[in-house]
Design a protein around this nucleic acid. Structure first.
Lengths: 188, 188
DNA sequence: CATTCTACTGACTTGCTGTCAGCACGTCGG
DNA sequence: CCGACGTGCTGACAGCAAGTCAGTAGAATG
């Protein structure tokens, strides 16, 4: 199935077409998964392990963590180059099933928690200024997810270096840049 | 249908349930739209008009445009507070139909073009530094779309002021902040 | 009043999902 | 060696929503 996702979006896959490649009959599918969304949920769990591993550098960095942030983003991008269509299929399927939607929400929530926590840590150390860490974390994670899926979720894939530069730029500026006189606190 | 989207996700709507509220039969639906995705495509066209109008301030600002950027974001947020579930339904449906997916891609592409153009303009005026305007524009637009849909696409909706602050923070930092010595050009 | 047009409907076909009784085959106690 | 049981799988069935179509009722037209 994963191979098929490189060739066609998940909307074009039926259980029959998935099972065609296995030599088994369609009902055999239900011996292993309750439905297609159950299979996708499994793919998400597998992908999460890889992504978390790739993101370690920044979460565990000591001292100046900006280089580690770049390493983490590079690692995540590498995982997405290998698994982009799977990532895309998951995000496209999530809204179609309540249970899968919950799994996706929790998946994103764990990233939000991890990033928020890291921001709080660096704020305590003085490396990051007094911003709303949770809200910024949520926004940056959504940025990453949609960018990665859009750039690597189908062929032709985007340019890894350009994506890395863009994401890194935004993360660095949003988190590590000190307020500049006159740029903040504009009247609303 | 729009009213129903406040109560339930679009996956739970069938053509039959949509037509139930109209007093007409199910086949009558096909007199007006080729299928549900055709209806959603129309919703997207309508929403785009509202969003573009709300975003005008920044695109037309002269001189220091940072306050105008805040106004544009506030306007877009206001539109999403009124139409969040519609926006969400569109983005959730887009992957399910090739034609609607194209409409969505073009919709996002027009935002990317407008924002890229504005960035180039401000770079020429010296307000924005030498960054990859197109790539940053694409990333920021995806950030906005996913954040707005997540925060306002269902009840309970998020806090407009908090969302405004977060988005504004990221846009301002990513675009208008000058490079800081030692923060850029880290070894990769 | 006769004719045409238009909006609409009941009934049908199609395609995919999910279920279930049953079959082939391997395994194990006697 | 044999009969009972488990397991993995399948063909066939039922359900459901989408999309199609011939046909109808009522308004518009001459």
């Amino acid at each position: 199935m994963i191979e098929m996702l490189w060739e066609q979006p998940i909307r074009d896959l039926s259980i029959a077409s998935i099972m065609d490649g296995t030599g088994l009959s369609r009902p055999a599918f239900y011996q292993y998964f309750p439905n297609v969304h159950g299979l996708v949920e499994q793919l998400l769990a597998d992908l999460e392990v890889e992504l978390v591993a790739a993101a370690m550098p920044w979460f565990t960095a000591v001292g100046d963590s900006r280089a580690a942030l770049r390493d983490s983003l590079r690692g995540i991008i590498a995982v997405c180059i290998e698994n982009g269509p799977v990532f895309r299929a998951i995000s496209e399927s999530a809204p179609l099933d309540a249970r899968l939607e919950l799994a996706w929400t929790e998946f994103m929530g764990r990233w939000d928690d991890s990033v928020s926590e890291r921001i709080a840590l660096e704020q305590k150390a003085g490396a990051i200024g007094p911003l709303n860490g949770v809200a910024i974390a949520v926004a940056l994670n959504r940025l990453d997810a949609s960018t990665l899926i859009a750039e690597f979720g189908r062929r032709p894939q985007g340019d890894p270096e350009a994506v890395l530069d863009s994401l890194y730029h935004i993360w660095i500026k949003a988190l590590y840049t000190k307020p500049i006189q006159g740029f903040e606190g504009l009247p609303s």
